[in-house]
Design a protein around this nucleic acid. Sequence first.
DNA 1: GTCCCGCCAGAAAGCGCTTGCTGCTTCCGG
DNA 2: CCGGAAGCAGCAAGCGCTTTCTGGCGGGAC
Lengths: 336, 336
Amino acid sequence: MATPAPKPLTMADVARHAGVSLATVSRVMNGNPSVDPALADRVRAAVASLNYTASPLARSLVSGRTQTVSVVVPDLGNPTFQAILRGLSRAASRSGYHVLVADSAEVVEEEEVLAVASRRRTDGIVLCAPRMPEERLATLLPELAPVVLVNRDPRAGVPVVAADYRSGLTELLEHLAALGHRRILYLAGVPWSASNAHRLEAVEDFRRANPGARVDEVPCGVDFDAGAAVLDDVLASGATAVLAFNDLVAMGLLSALAASGVRVPEDVSVAGFDDIPFAAYTSPPLTTATVPAEELGEKAWLGMSGLIEARDAPESVYLRPRARIRGSTGPAPSAR
Amino acid sequence: MATPAPKPLTMADVARHAGVSLATVSRVMNGNPSVDPALADRVRAAVASLNYTASPLARSLVSGRTQTVSVVVPDLGNPTFQAILRGLSRAASRSGYHVLVADSAEVVEEEEVLAVASRRRTDGIVLCAPRMPEERLATLLPELAPVVLVNRDPRAGVPVVAADYRSGLTELLEHLAALGHRRILYLAGVPWSASNAHRLEAVEDFRRANPGARVDEVPCGVDFDAGAAVLDDVLASGATAVLAFNDLVAMGLLSALAASGVRVPEDVSVAGFDDIPFAAYTSPPLTTATVPAEELGEKAWLGMSGLIEARDAPESVYLRPRARIRGSTGPAPSAR
DNA sequence: GTCCCGCCAGAAAGCGCTTGCTGCTTCCGG
DNA sequence: CCGGAAGCAGCAAGCGCTTTCTGGCGGGAC
């Protein structure tokens, strides 16, 4: 009853209230210095007394800037993307930007649609689409610019923010080798993902450098269930150490191993990848490689912000994961 | 060089291309049936051949609808909020809505600012602000409407979507009692949060119903570190069972207990709350109460969507957590 | 054959804001 | 004392769309 029609205030109301023109109000609100300080004060007083805030919508329409960026991720349930989103969101927020988030539910086609749709309402887009085929990505990118890519191979004109999975896995492999492991299993992720390819390169490097060791690949997935599901393969393989595609897979495996009475690391060593917050709290605590996902998100924002503000492509960023040795890896069992 | 000035297409371009007026193009694009099918086809053909999509911005400005909702959470790093966001995001997406997310980094003042700012760019807001004082919330709500509240006490005019923490904790307490535990420790969360208050009520209920048992409260936090930090208190208390504020706290404690050689559940039983995805993968697997956070997110969207479309306040929703018994709780040690 | 009505396309008025341009005022130098 | 250069407020033209209103046209009824 107090306000039957809570018609939102417009700049015209402020102008009337302050006895100036629309343009002057606008200039004051945008900090344009070419306004008489006295008038500016009147305007500010009016703004304050009316508790006015300019419509971001109208402002965006005319200025062409929305102060918002989109983020597309394959799965908001994945800790790595969560961390990226978190880092990005906080960094963007510090610069007064908002974040529009879209979850493609792991559907690649959806990814494209979402990306295009989200992009239209924002000033730029951060794309986490590890499984999108190169050629689709290539055709999509021009439509999306400005865009920052996360965890994809470098390319001309588009800044990429990525973890160096290859060197990370190499560290882990060397750690296992130093512990005496000669039969190692790599639980591969989805074949067409860039980061899986990089890990495979690390495996190749390792094989070349360590002819005495054997590394086998087992196709696997990217989540708990996938890790639990390969239990039999792991047991049958005779391997003394297992490198999981990521921590989720490692945790699934760890749990399955525990349930079947296999001791970790006495009987078999297990390592993950990513160092998600939970990795330190498994038992035994999980050896893994630290991917600073939150920092990845921050860097992605930095890149985005560079593109938006300066319109020149910032450098790509590669963060190096470091092996994080915990209790789930130990010396290879001498007698098998 | 191909397109030096990639000036985005406007509706006028389409109109010209199809030889009709702006208004007709608009009508076709909005499915207004009062258009000659032949013209409509011409328009659609033009739209397709130009690959035109209407500017959401301009559309929003005039229609007053942005097809976007905001979500404010205290911490994107918390699995419960992640799940809520995920459920919400996917549900909203199915209805063609976008999601603007804001992370207040656990700062209550920030929460208000973010909420107001986000709200102005969207059609409504889903507020997860468990720690915001009642009175601030009360003054904030009118400014935010339409708004859906998550995990807050019910109130007139605003739909609330919440888990019933009280009954969840009661189930857990009864489970422990049935196992013979008579000395139980509750690791409290932040005192002024609604869900902590509800849990305390459950504790009260239990005390009344079980005069022979003793439940003590220990102030604690809401994350891993808080759980690890209360180790000594737990050990010193002589309790045979510990109820943690949430799974994060329980996992921190579990890990600290393991490190000090205390066996779970032989020496002490531990239960969490929330049933985050990782709870099943600790060792021993964590007994907890299942809070369907993702469903909470979906329900929140349902509520929001009701508010936006029908402009009448939908019913509040209370989801009942169920005790999820796993290996971290067992019979009370007979001899202490 | 005329009149009236209804249907549908287009013209035009905004949505709430930014900004180029105009023209007034003021102040300086000559 | 006058001319010109600044400085600064306001007008008005959009930004790209939706929607009301207007008016032209064709068909049905008499």
